[in-house]
Simulated assay, not measured.
Amino acid sequence: MEIQFNGKRALVTGAGRGIGRSIALKLAECGAKTVALNRSQGDLDSLKKECPSIETCQVDLNDWSTARTAIEALGHFDLLVNSAGVSRVGPFLDVKEEDFDFVFNTNIKALFNVSQAVARSMVKNKSGGAIVHLSSAASKQAIKDHAVYCSTKGAVDSLTSVMALELGPHKIRTNCVNPTATMTAMGLYAWGDPVKSKPLLDRIPLGRFAEVEDVVNAVVWLLSDKASYINGATLPVEGGLLVA
Rank of each mutant, 00 (worst) to 15 (best):
L206F: 15
A130Q: 02
R9L: 08
L74F: 06
G168L: 05
M163I: 06
A244S: 15
E50L: 09
D63H: 14
L235N: 00
G192I: 04
N125A: 12
D99T: 03
V148S: 01
I230Q: 11
K33Y: 05
L242A: 10
S40P: 07
K33G: 00
T56F: 00
M186G: 13
A110D: 01
G20L: 10
S40H: 09
C30K: 15
D193N: 14
K171L: 14
V59H: 02
F92Q: 08
E213M: 10
L235T: 05
N175G: 04
L188F: 02
G20Q: 14
G42W: 03
M122W: 02
D193G: 10
C57T: 08
R21E: 14
N62F: 09
D45Y: 07
V243F: 13
Y189G: 04
K26A: 13
A67T: 03
A137Y: 00
V156F: 00
G239Q: 02
E72Q: 09
V89W: 09
D225I: 08
E98N: 15
V216H: 04
V237E: 06
V162N: 07
P205Y: 10
A67G: 06
V215A: 13
N105F: 14
H133L: 01
L200E: 11
E166G: 01
A185C: 08
G192P: 05
A119C: 09
I172A: 10
P194D: 15
N107C: 11
D193Q: 09
V162F: 13
A137L: 11
F112M: 12
S40T: 14
Y189N: 10
G168H: 04
M122T: 01
F104E: 11
G75I: 01
D225G: 12
D193E: 05
L165F: 12
T66E: 14
T106V: 15
K144P: 00
I204H: 02
M122Y: 07
A218F: 06
T13R: 10
E166K: 13
W221G: 06
G192V: 02
Q58G: 03
V148R: 01
E29A: 15
